[in-house]
């Protein structure tokens, strides 16, 4: 996704390197190459602005070193969550 870039400095993704065990699962599941995990080392965030907050990394981090506010990057969904609240919101996808 080098040609298509979205807004800068908005992602809620955080990585706690103290907790990270370097298993590499985050970099496997991330569809945007946000993480790099080198051999015998811990994960690093190399492209924070590439993050779309899908939450795959956090869900698959066995030691919960990653936090992100996951959600759907969809205007229709967000409008509904403003009007009806998060629980009742849905989108057409």
């Amino acid at each position: 996704m080098e040609t298509l870039r979205y807004l800068k400095n908005v992602s809620t993704l955080r990585l706690d390197q103290e907790t990270c065990i370097g298993c590499g699962m985050c970099s496997t599941v991330c569809p945007h190459g946000v993480f790099v995990v080198e051999e015998k080392s811990k994960a690093r965030i190399v492209d924070l602005d590439g993050c779309m907050e899908c939450g795959a990394c956090a869900a698959n981090c066995a030691v919960q070193a990653i936090t992100v506010t996951p959600g759907v990057g969809c205007a229709a969904y967000i409008i509904q969550s403003w009007l009806k609240g998060k629980a009742a919101a849905s989108c057409g996808c």
Binding site: V10, M52, E53, P70, G73, Y77, I78
Partner: peptide, 14 residues
């Protein structure tokens, strides 16, 4: 609204 159909927009950004 097309943001919802793309594979790269984050909810925070939208």
């Amino acid at each position: 609204n097309f943001t919802g159909a793309t594979p790269y927009t984050s909810p925070s950004g939208v």
